[in-house]
Design a protein around this nucleic acid. Structure first.
Lengths: 315, 315, 315
DNA sequence: ATAGGTTTTGTCAAGCTTTTGTACAT
DNA sequence: ATGTACAAAAGCTTGACAAAACCTAT
C-alpha cells in the first residue's frame, strides 16, 4: 500500500503554521534548526521552509524533553535520537506506523492493535491492507481479528479500554469485515442464515463466521445483532435456509429461548455459536454447538447431507 | 368542448397560455426554442405554436436548473437530458424508443429498495455498484441513500417493515458506507469528530455525513452510535479536533445533555445534527444546527474562520 | 426529491455560480487555476469556463486544507493529490494527470489503464485498492479487468504497446488476481479444474473465470497456462472434478486436440472457453462452449445440475 | 529582537468577448 | 411569427499591486 511515511510533496507546513501548531515561535524554530539541526525542512522554490508532519513530531518530542528538565541541546539530541522508531503522538495524527519488511503475523497483529488503540485510522487501514495482501483471509480472521476481538472484550470487562477506543475499533473492523463479506449471498451453494438473539449487540464474530462460511462455498444471509427469533424463523423459512446459526457472547442471551430455539431446530438445521453458547442450552434444544473459533467451525461445517441443491455429495 | 385548441384532452397550449402558466415571457420561450431546441411545439394550421404538457414540464425543469445556478445553455441541456421518463407523445406516437440511457436515479433507487426489501444481497450490491459507477458519491448519498433511510425509518414507525428487512438493509448499507469511508482519517485537512449521544443507535446518517465531510477535505474521526459525551470530549481534545458533530434521530436523545454539550461547545466548535437536533437544544448550548441533509450540510460547512469572501450570502 | 443546485450528470457551472457555491471569488478561482492548476474547466464554445461537480469538490477540499493551515500551494497540491491515484510526482512533475476522485467506473478503469501504461506501480495498486473497496469483485473483474485485458490484447496485436508495458501490466494484474484467488480450492462446493492447452500462455482471463467460479461456490483447481492435456486428464480424474474448463485465446491452440478433448469430455463434463473457443471445435468434441465474459459465464454455470457423468469411473 | 529585502497570494483594473433577455422591424 | 439587433450581465486575459508571511543578517 501507499501512505506509509510522509513524502515530500505531501502536505507541507510553512513556519508560521508549524509555530502555531506547536506553540513555539518561528524564531525559536529557526534557532533550533541552526543550532541543533533539529529540523531539516525542505525549501520552496522561493526559499520558504516547508515542514513535514515528522518535523512537527520532532518539535513536540523536543518540547517534552525540555519540560522534563533537559537542556535545549540535550533535548534536541534526545528528540533526534528517537527518530525512526514508530511514532505515537495522539495529536500528531496519522502517524502511520511504519511497517516495512515482512514481519510475522504477530508483529502485524500488535501493530493493528496499537493503531486501533490510538484511534489512528490511516495506520490501522494500512496494516489491515498489508495483512490481507500477505496472508489469506482465513489467517487474518483467525489469527488476527478474532484474537483482537477476544482481547478487546477482556479489556472492556476490566475497564482498561475507553468507550472511544472500543467504538473506533468496532466501527473500523466492521467496515473491513463488511467489505470481505460483500457478495456473500451470491452463488449456488447451500444457504445459511446468521443472527444474534435479542439483546445481543456484539455481532462481529458472527460476521467473521459468515465470511468464512461463504469462502467455503455457502451463501450467507445475515440478520446480525439483536434479532427476534420470530423474525429469524420467518427468514429461514422464506429463504429455505439449509442452516441457521444463532450466536451470542454470553449465555444469558439464550435464556428463555429454549422453546423458540427448539421449534426453530425442528424446522431447519440449527447451530448455536459464540462464547455464550453452552452445552446446557444446546442439549435440550437438540442442536449443534460451535465452540471453536468461527473460521475453524466454518471449515468443519459440511454442507447439508440431503440438499435440494444437489451439492456434490461425494466422498 | 368546441374548437380552439386548448382542450385538456390533448392539452395543447398556445404560447400565451404557456407563458402565463410558467411565468416566462413568450419572447423567451421562443428564444429558448430557437437557441437551445428546448421546445418542439407542433403547429396549428395557421402556424401557431401548440405546446404539450411535456413541453410545460420541460420549461419547468429548465427553470429549476436556472435557479440552481446553471447557465441557460446548460440548463436547457440538462432539462432535455432528463427527458425520457415522461414521453407523452401526442401525434404519431408509437415506436416507444426504448431510451436505454442511464435509467434515472429514481429507477435505481427503487431497484435498490426492492432488492433490500427482498433480502436479495447480490442484487442490492449490484445496484449499488451501478449507482456508484454512474453517479457521483454525493449524488448517490444525497438522492438515494438518505431518502431510503428516511423512508425506512418511516416504514419502521408504521410497522410496515420487518426486523429482518431493517437489519438486512442496515447491515448492507453500513458495509457499503464503511467502504466509502475508508481512509477518511488520512490527509491534512481540519479534523472533525463525529458521534451519536448515549442511547442513539442509528448512526448511518452520521456515517453519510462523515463521508461527505471527508470528500470535502476534512479528516474524520468516528465514534459512532451510543457514545458518552465524556468520551467524546476526551477524544475531541486529544485529537485537537476542529469540529465536533453530535447527531441523533430523535430529540429525546439530547435531553439532559445541555450541560455537557455546553461544556463541549466551550472547548471546541460544536454542531448538532440529525432529525432530533432542534433549535430548542442548540440555542441554550449556543451552537450550530445542521438541519439539511448530511451531504448538503457537509458542503456548507466551510472550515473554521474563512474570512475571504465578501460576496452575497448564500442563504 | 428536490433539486436546486444538486443536479447530477453534465450540469456544468460557470465561474459565477461556482464562486457563489463555494464562497470563493471568481478572481481567486482563476488564480488557483493559473497558479496551481487546481481546476481544469472545459470551455464553452465562446471560451467561458465550465466547471463540473468534481471541480467543486476540489475547491472544497482546497478550502479545507487551507483552513487546516496549509499554504495555498500546498493545499492545492493536497487537494489534487486526493483525486484518486496521484501521479508519481518526481522530477519535472507536470502532466499531472488528475484522475477525478470517485467518478464512475469508467474513470477508474482509465486511471488504471493509464497507471499501467506508465509503469506506475503504486498508482495502479492504489486504483485497484479503491476499486475493490468501492465495488464488488464481480463488477471489477467484469467491467474493469476484462475490458482492459481485451484492449491490451488488441494493442498488442497492433504493436502499440511495448513489451515492458505488457509485462508490467500482466504481472501486476496477475498478482492482484492471485490474491483474489487465494483459498479457492477450499470448501465443499463442486470441483472445477481449469487449464490452458499447450502453447497457450495467456491465462489471465482463465484466472478471472476461476475467481468468479469460486465466488459462486465452486472449488477451483488451477493448472494455468500451457498444460499438456494428459496432465489435465490425470488431474481431473484424480480430483474427481465436476467440471473441466479449457481456455485459449486463439483457435489454433485447440488445433489437433480434437481427439484428446473428446476423450476428456467422455470422462468428465468439459467446457471450452476463451476467444479461441469456437463452435467448430466444440461440436465434434461434443462439449459446452463458454463465449460470454468469464464472470457472466461463471454465474451461468450451475453446479452439476445435469445428471450426466455422476460417477466418475475411477481407474 | 529588529531591520530590510523577498516570496506568496488575494485582489483589482482595463479592454475586449460571449451569453442571453428583450426590443424592433418586417 | 420570424429574424435581426441591441445591451446588460457575466466572462476572459494580461498585468500589476500590496498586505501578509518569510527570509537573512546584524
Amino acid at each position: 500500500m501507499l501512505f506509509v511515511g510522509t513524502e515530500p510533496g505531501d502536505g507541507l507546513l510553512r513556519i508560521g503554521e508549524l509555530s502555531r501548531r506547536v506553540g513555539v515561535s518561528d524564531h525559536v524554530l529557526r534557532a533550533w534548526e541552526r543550532r541543533y539541526g533539529l529540523l531539516k525542512p525542505v525549501r520552496s522554490a522561493g526559499g520558504f521552509r516547508l515542514y513535514s508532519e515528522a518535523d512537527e513530531g520532532r518539535v513536540r518530542r523536543m518540547q517534552a524533553h525540555l519540560a522534563g528538565g533537559l537542556s535545549a541541546a540535550e533535548a534536541a539530541r534526545a528528540a533526534l535520537g528517537e527518530d525512526g522508531a514508530g511514532t505515537a503522538s495522539a495529536a500528531g495524527g496519522s502517524a502511520s506506523v511504519a511497517v516495512e519488511r515482512h514481519e510475522g503475523l504477530a508483529d502485524r497483529a500488535s501493530a493493528l492493535a496499537l493503531a486501533l488503540d490510538e484511534l489512528d485510522e490511516p495506520a490501522a487501514q494500512a496494516v489491515f491492507d498489508r495483512l490481507l495482501s500477505d496472508f489469506t483471509v482465513e489467517t487474518v480472521l483467525r489469527d488476527v481479528v478474532m484474537p483482537y476481538l477476544q482481547e478487546l472484550g477482556e479489556r472492556w470487562q476490566r475497564g482498561s479500554v475507553t468507550v472511544a477506543q472500543e467504538h473506533f475499533a468496532s466501527n473500523l473492523l466492521r467496515g473491513r469485515l463488511a467489505s470481505l463479506a460483500r457478495g456473500w449471498g451470491h452463488g449456488h451453494g447451500p444457504r445459511a442464515v446468521l443472527a444474534c438473539p435479542p439483546g445481543e449487540r456484539h455481532d462481529l464474530a458472527l460476521l467473521v463466521f459468515g465470511i468464512a462460511l461463504n469462502r467455503n462455498g455457502w451463501r450467507v444471509g445475515y440478520l446480525g445483532a439483536d434479532t427476534p427469533l420470530e423474525e429469524l424463523i420467518n427468514t429461514a423459512v422464506d429463504t429455505s435456509a439449509d442452516l441457521v446459526v444463532v450466536a451470542a457472547a454470553t449465555p444469558e442471551r439464550f435464556a428463555g429461548l429454549t422453546e423458540d430455539l427448539t421449534r426453530l431446530a425442528s424446522i431447519v438445521p440449527l447451530a448455536l455459536a459464540g462464547a455464550g453458547a453452552a452445552q446446557t442450552m444446546a442439549l435440550p434444544v437438540g442442536t449443534r454447538l460451535l465452540t471453536a473459533d468461527p473460521v475453524t467451525e466454518a471449515e468443519r461445517l459440511l454442507p447439508p447431507a440431503n440438499p435440494h441443491h444437489d451439492a456434490p455429495a461425494r466422498q
